[in-house]
Amino acid sequence: MTSPLKPQLNREYIVNQLEALLGIPSPSGYCMAIMKYMKDEVGKLGYKLEMTPKGNGMITIPGQMADQVIGISAHLDTLGAMVRSIKPSGMIRFTPIGSYAMHTVEGEYCRIHTRDNRTYEGTVLSTKASVHVYTDARDWKREEANMEIRIDETVKSKEETGKLGIAAGDFISWEPRTRILPNGWIKSRHLDDKASVAALFGFMEWLKREGVVPSCTIKLIFSTYEEVGHGSSFIPADITELIAVDMGALGDDLSATERDVSICAKDSTGPYDYNMTSRLIELAKREELPYAVDIYPHYGSDASAALRGGSNIRAALIGPGVHASHGMERTHADAVVNTAALLLAYVMES
Score class of each variant (00 low, 15 high):
2 T>A: 06
2 T>P: 12
5 L>N: 12
11 R>W: 06
13 Y>E: 11
13 Y>M: 07
23 G>A: 15
23 G>I: 02
24 I>Y: 10
24 I>M: 04
25 P>I: 01
31 C>I: 02
36 K>M: 06
39 K>E: 15
43 G>N: 03
44 K>C: 01
49 L>K: 01
50 E>P: 05
50 E>T: 10
52 T>P: 01
52 T>S: 05
54 K>P: 01
55 G>Q: 03
56 N>D: 14
57 G>V: 04
57 G>D: 01
63 G>T: 04
64 Q>L: 03
64 Q>N: 04
66 A>Q: 10
67 D>C: 00
73 S>V: 00
73 S>L: 00
82 M>T: 13
83 V>K: 10
84 R>S: 13
85 S>I: 05
87 K>D: 15
90 G>K: 06
96 P>W: 06
98 G>P: 11
100 Y>D: 14
101 A>W: 03
111 R>F: 07
122 G>S: 05
124 V>E: 06
127 T>S: 10
128 K>S: 02
129 A>V: 04
139 D>W: 07
142 R>F: 05
143 E>I: 12
144 E>T: 14
144 E>S: 12
145 A>L: 08
145 A>D: 14
149 I>L: 02
150 R>K: 09
157 S>M: 13
158 K>S: 02
159 E>P: 05
159 E>D: 13
160 E>F: 11
160 E>H: 10
162 G>P: 11
164 L>Y: 11
174 W>M: 15
175 E>M: 11
176 P>K: 00
177 R>Y: 15
178 T>H: 00
179 R>A: 03
179 R>F: 08
181 L>I: 10
184 G>K: 13
186 I>G: 01
187 K>A: 12
187 K>M: 10
189 R>N: 05
191 L>W: 09
194 K>L: 12
205 E>G: 00
207 L>Y: 03
207 L>I: 10
208 K>H: 08
211 G>V: 04
213 V>A: 07
215 S>W: 00
216 C>A: 14
218 I>H: 04
219 K>D: 06
221 I>G: 04
223 S>H: 13
225 Y>R: 12
226 E>V: 02
231 G>Q: 15
237 A>D: 13
237 A>C: 11
238 D>T: 12
240 T>I: 07
246 D>T: 01
254 L>N: 12
260 D>M: 01
261 V>K: 09
262 S>G: 12
263 I>L: 10
264 C>F: 02
264 C>T: 14
269 T>S: 15
270 G>R: 11
274 Y>N: 09
278 S>C: 01
278 S>P: 01
282 E>M: 12
286 R>S: 14
287 E>H: 03
287 E>N: 12
289 L>D: 08
290 P>Q: 10
294 D>T: 00
298 H>Q: 13
300 G>Y: 07
301 S>R: 06
301 S>M: 05
304 S>H: 15
305 A>Q: 01
307 L>K: 12
308 R>Q: 15
310 G>D: 11
312 N>Y: 05
313 I>Y: 01
315 A>K: 05
317 L>N: 07
318 I>Y: 09
318 I>E: 04
318 I>D: 09
319 G>A: 01
320 P>D: 08
322 V>H: 08
326 H>K: 06
328 M>C: 08
333 A>H: 03
334 D>I: 08
334 D>L: 09
338 N>T: 06
339 T>D: 02
340 A>G: 11
342 L>W: 03
342 L>K: 08
342 L>Q: 04
344 L>T: 14
346 Y>C: 11
